[in-house]
């Protein structure tokens, strides 16, 4: 049985997952995810030595598309769902602090 997750581990995972969580959410997920991980630990019972991992249930080979030019999707269709635009660009907050950029 694995050790339950710590609060720090959950906070770290939330950061990696780009989720801003409240303390209360962190605690709830800590308990729930620990329960699920305890169940998943069952996989440790099986001997998998020498078994090739199977990423896909049907072992496809890469399939290349035809290299033929085709019309792109119109810009207005792509921007229609954007939360903020400026002209024909997506608008976002500054990526860098003042003075840090080129």
């Amino acid at each position: 049985m694995p050790e339950p997750l710590t609060t720090r581990e959950v906070e770290h995972v939330a950061k990696l997952a780009r989720l801003r969580l409240s303390e209360e959410q962190v605690e709830r997920y800590r308990t729930q995810l620990s329960d699920v991980l305890a169940h998943i630990a069952k996989l440790g019972e099986l001997d998998v030595a020498g078994v090739e991992p199977m990423a896909h249930c049907i072992e496809f080979v890469n399939r290349l598309g035809n290299d033929e030019p085709a019309p792109a999707m119109p810009l207005e269709a792509l921007l229609r769902n954007a939360p903020a635009v400026e002209g024909s660009y997506l608008a976002v907050p500054k990526v860098l602090d003042d003075g840090g950029g080129a």
Partner: peptide
């Protein structure tokens, strides 16, 4: 990003994203 995702996704989706990320 982090606030948009926390507001946009419900608890079950957040749990699974956390689980997968971990």
């Amino acid at each position: 990003y982090a606030r948009s995702r926390a507001e946009g996704f419900g608890p079950e989706v957040q749990r699974r994203i956390m689980l997968g990320t971990y």
